[in-house]
Amino acid sequence: MERVDVVVIGGGQSGLASAGALVRQGLTPVVLEASDRPAGSWPHYYDSLTLFSPARYSALPGRPFPGDPDRYPHRDEVVAYLTDCAARLDADVRTGRQVGAVRRAGDGFEVEVAGGELLTARAVVAASGSFGRPHRPDLPGLDAFTGTVLHAADYRDPAALAGRRVIVVGAGNSAVQIAAELHDVARTTLASRNPIRYAPQRVLGRDLHFWLTLTGIDRAPIGRFLRTPPSPPIIDDGRYRAALTRGAPDHRPLFTGIDGAKVTWSDGMREEVDAILLATGYRPDLPYLAGIDGALDPAGLPRHREGRSLVHPGLVFAGLEWQRSLTSNSLRGAGRDAARTARELAALLGRR
C-alpha cells in the first residue's frame, strides 16, 4: 500500500490548481484523474463552447494563458492549456485512475482506485467536479415523454438534432448558447421557469471581468452566506438578447405537462416535440465519499464550510459552485481557493 501526503481526486482545473498550491506549501500531492488526460471535463463539453472571460482572467496561478490576453479562448484551447499546465506541474499526476472509494483510516484516509490500487493519505482533496452528475430536474410529465431526452452533458453539436422540433430547458449561459445555435438547424424553443437575466460582456469599453476584479466582487467570500445561491445571468455581448427578442429561438415559460410526444404549454397549446434538451446544470460528483460518515448530506452534496469538511479534518473540497466566491468553480477562481486550502492543510499536517 502506497503512503502519500495528499491525494487530489480529479485532474481538472481545480485539481491542478490544488496540486500546484500544495507543492508550494512543501507537500507532495498525488493527483488521480479518471480519464486519459488531465483536463477535467473540458474535452467533453459541446464543440462551440467559448469562455465568457478573457484569457487574462482565465489562467491558473503562475501559468498565463498563451496568446492574446483579451481574446475569449475556445474549449479546445482550454484543453490544451490544462494539459500543458499538468505537464509542467511539479507533482505526480496519474491518469486512468478512477477512484472507487475513500475511507477513514486512523487519522488519515485510504483511497481505493478501480483495479485494486490502494493509497493511504494524510489528507484528501475532492476536486472531481460535477460533469459526471448532470442535474435532471423533476419536470412535469418528463418521465412519460416518448421522444428523445438528453442533457447538455450529452450535447456536442447541432447536427444530430437538425430538422427536428426541440425544446431546450434552462435559463443559464449554456441553455441560451445551445438554443441559439440549434435554432439555425432545428425548430427550437428555450423554456424556463424563470426569466432570462443578462449581464453585459463589456462595460464602459472594458470586459465585465475587469470590473469584477477591480471591485473585488470576483473574490469576495460570500459563499458562506448563501443557502440558495443565485443563478448567474447570461453574459452577453448583445447577440443572445437580440436573438431571443426576435424569436430566434423563441422563449416560453416551462411546459405544464407531457402526454407521449405532445407537450402542453402554459397557454394550453399542445404540440408534438422530437427532443427535450436539459441545460439544467450539474451537482457535485462525489460517490466515492459515500462511505465516510457525515461527509455528504442525504442528497449527496458535500457538508462543508468554504471547502473544509464539517466533520473530517483533512478532507477538503475544491471547485464547488459558490464554495467561497462566485468564481470558485471557474478557471479564474480555482487558484485563490486552492491557495487557501493548501495553507490550511499545510498547517494541519505540520508543514509550516
Rank of each mutant, 00 (worst) to 15 (best):
I178K: 10
R156E: 03
L150E: 10
A162L: 09
V185W: 06
Y155Q: 03
V176A: 15
A171P: 01
I178N: 11
I178D: 06
V149L: 15
T148L: 14
T189Y: 04
V176P: 02
R164W: 04
A171V: 04
V168H: 00
A175F: 01
A160C: 12
D184M: 15
A179T: 05
D157P: 04
V169P: 00
H151C: 02
D157N: 09
L182Q: 08
A180R: 07
R164M: 13
R165Q: 08
G163L: 10
R165H: 06
I178S: 08
N173R: 11
G172D: 04
A175M: 06
L150F: 12
T188D: 06
P158G: 11
V185N: 03
G172C: 08
V185S: 15
D184R: 15
L150N: 10
G172A: 09
A186F: 06
P158K: 14
R164H: 04
R156Y: 05
R156C: 03
A186E: 07
V176H: 06
V176S: 14
T189N: 03
G163W: 05
I167E: 01
A179N: 04
A175H: 02
R156Q: 08
T188F: 02
A159N: 08
I178E: 12
D157R: 07
A153S: 14
G170S: 00
S174E: 08
V166H: 03
V169S: 01
A160F: 04
R165E: 10
V169I: 09
R164C: 06
V149A: 13
A186P: 01
G147P: 04
V166G: 05
V149F: 11
G147H: 13
V166Y: 03
P158Y: 06
S174A: 13
A179V: 06
P158M: 12
T148Y: 07
G147W: 14
D154H: 09
L161W: 00
R156L: 00
T188V: 04
A153L: 06
D154M: 06
S174P: 00
G172L: 05
G147K: 11
R156K: 04
T188G: 07
L182S: 12
L150H: 09
A159S: 14
R156A: 02
V185C: 11
